[in-house]
Each structure stands twice: as structure tokens, then as C-alpha cells.
């Protein structure tokens, strides 16, 4: 039930990249979001470290997010990371077990940045980039 509902949501709902308002970031560009999530620069515009958080690998929203962000399917994203993991220079984003956990980490961990369906956004999280369907 839930999965089905999520997938429906995932297809129709806008996704937002959210960060704690205290991070002091107003908005991010698509490239900035890509750099952060795909391990290129893990820094916010203000120089603070950015810690990207992925949804659970099975969560449809994760696939939807990368699809909307870089046009890649999860296998491709996986292959990408497989190459980098080998050298150990960078790592894929931390994987949350659930949406709740993402929100938890966003609230609590400084520099944490994640993505949510737009309707799950709450205070003090703030959307810095939106991916419309």
C-alpha cells in the first residue's frame, strides 16, 4: 500500500532538496546539487561541508531524484559509484533507512542535505532546489 502510494507520489510530486535553515543557504543551482550528491565538491556555497543523504536504495523517490537531476537510472548511478569506491577518494552519499531518518538527520546533523517530496518539507528545513516532475 505504502509503496504503491509512494510511487504514485514520486511520479506526480515535486521533489525538493532540503537543508536546515541554519546552514545559511538560500538556494542551490542544479550543478551545485549534482556536485554535492555525486561526490565532486562536498561543500556548500558558504564553504561549509555538505553531507548528502540518499533515500533508501529501494525507495522509489531515490530513483526519481537521480532521474530528474542527471537523467540516470539507479544502475547507472550505481556503476558510477562503483568506479569511485575502488579508489577510495570519495564515497557515495549516506543512505538513510527511511524518510523519517532523512528528516531526522537533516534536522540534526550540520551540513546534512537531502531530498524529499515537496509535501514532506517542514520547519526548520528549507528547500534550496526544486525538481518538478
Amino acid at each position: 500500500m505504502l509503496t504503491l502510494a509512494s510511487s504514485v507520489i514520486a511520479n506526480e510530486t515535486s521533489l525538493v532538496v532540503a537543508i536546515h535553515v541554519s546552514a545559511g543557504v538560500e538556494t542551490l543551482t542544479r550543478d551545485q546539487v549534482i556536485n554535492i550528491f555525486l561526490g565532486r565538491f562536498r561543500q556548500l556555497p558558504n564553504g561549509h561541508l555538505a553531507i548528502p543523504i540518499d533515500q533508501d536504495s529501494d525507495h522509489p523517490i531515490r530513483a526519481e531524484f537521480y532521474r530528474r537531476l542527471v537523467g540516470k537510472n539507479p544502475a547507472e548511478i550505481h556503476a558510477y559509484w562503483a568506479r569511485l569506491i575502488f579508489s577510495g577518494k570519495t564515497t557515495p552519499p549516506r543512505e538513510a533507512e527511511s524518510e523519517e531518518q532523512i528528516i531526522q538527520w537533516l534536522m540534526t546533523e550540520p551540513g546534512a542535505i537531502g531530498y524529499l517530496p515537496a509535501d514532506r518539507l517542514r520547519e526548520p528545513l528549507k528547500a534550496v532546489f526544486t525538481l518538478d516532475p
Binding site: 555525486l38 565532486r40 558510477y80 568506479r83 569511485l84 575502488f86 579508489s87 577510495g88 577518494k89 570519495t90
Partner: peptide, 17 residues
């Protein structure tokens, strides 16, 4: 494609390989 990844991630180890 590997080079692309290495360069994107600035992964010198991957590049050396």
C-alpha cells in the same frame, strides 16, 4: 567513460589506473 568519472570526481587514483 571511466576517464569521465575520474575527471568528474578528480579521482587521481582512478586516473592513474
Amino acid at each position: 567513460s571511466t576517464a569521465s568519472v575520474a575527471c568528474f570526481a578528480k579521482d587521481d587514483v582512478l586516473a592513474t589506473e
